[in-house]
Computed example of a mutant assay.
Amino acid sequence: MAIANESRQEAHNMEEHHGSGRYWIIWAALLVLTLVTVFTGKMHMPSFGLALALVIATTKGTLVTLYFMHLIDHKGANRIVFCVSILFVMLMLAVPLIDLGTRFRFSNPPGSQYSDLQPPDIGANVKEGRYGGGVRHHGSEEKSESHGGH
């Protein structure tokens, strides 16, 4: 009996047609959010740039799901599934970020924004006699040149 009532409610919801004005408003909101994403993506915001991008993307996805996929018109289990999926997405993002923020100091790579360790000097410095991370011996260059012709 509950299934019959739910299908009757679904049929009633599908019979109600909404005007196109609602879709134009949602489309304009999505366009504005896309422009905000583009403009903030060109800015350098190391402290909250990722969080802002995730909030904007989540908002856009929610608008698309609710209005263009008509989830706003449905009741019951569909809304529960949507809310649980949003909860799982937030958990899947929060757990790695919490892990990264609470790591042991030396487990973060040197030079990253999460580490206060200095990056290793990998580049070549000919004046100091360093070639890409190690000191070359002058004898090794001569040996490699003498064996190159044979």
Rank of each mutant, 00 (worst) to 15 (best):
G132E: 12
R22T: 15
H147S: 04
E145W: 05
D116Q: 04
P96G: 10
V36W: 00
M69T: 14
K75I: 04
T59D: 01
I98N: 08
I80S: 11
V84Y: 12
L52C: 02
G148A: 14
H12L: 15
S107K: 08
Q9F: 03
A4C: 02
D116C: 01
T34C: 07
T58C: 13
F39D: 12
Q113P: 01
F82K: 07
S115Y: 01
V126H: 02
A2G: 03
D99R: 12
L117H: 05
I56A: 04
G111H: 04
A124K: 02
H70R: 15
V89F: 04
L97N: 08
V36S: 01
K143Y: 08
R136N: 10
V64D: 02
N125S: 06
P119H: 02
T65L: 13
V38P: 01
G129T: 03
K143T: 10
S146E: 09
V64Y: 08
V64C: 06
E16V: 15
I80F: 13
G129P: 07
H137R: 12
M92R: 08
A28E: 11
S112N: 05
G149R: 15
A29T: 06
V55T: 09
L31F: 06
H137E: 04
N108K: 08
L54C: 06
L33S: 05
L93T: 09
L52Q: 01
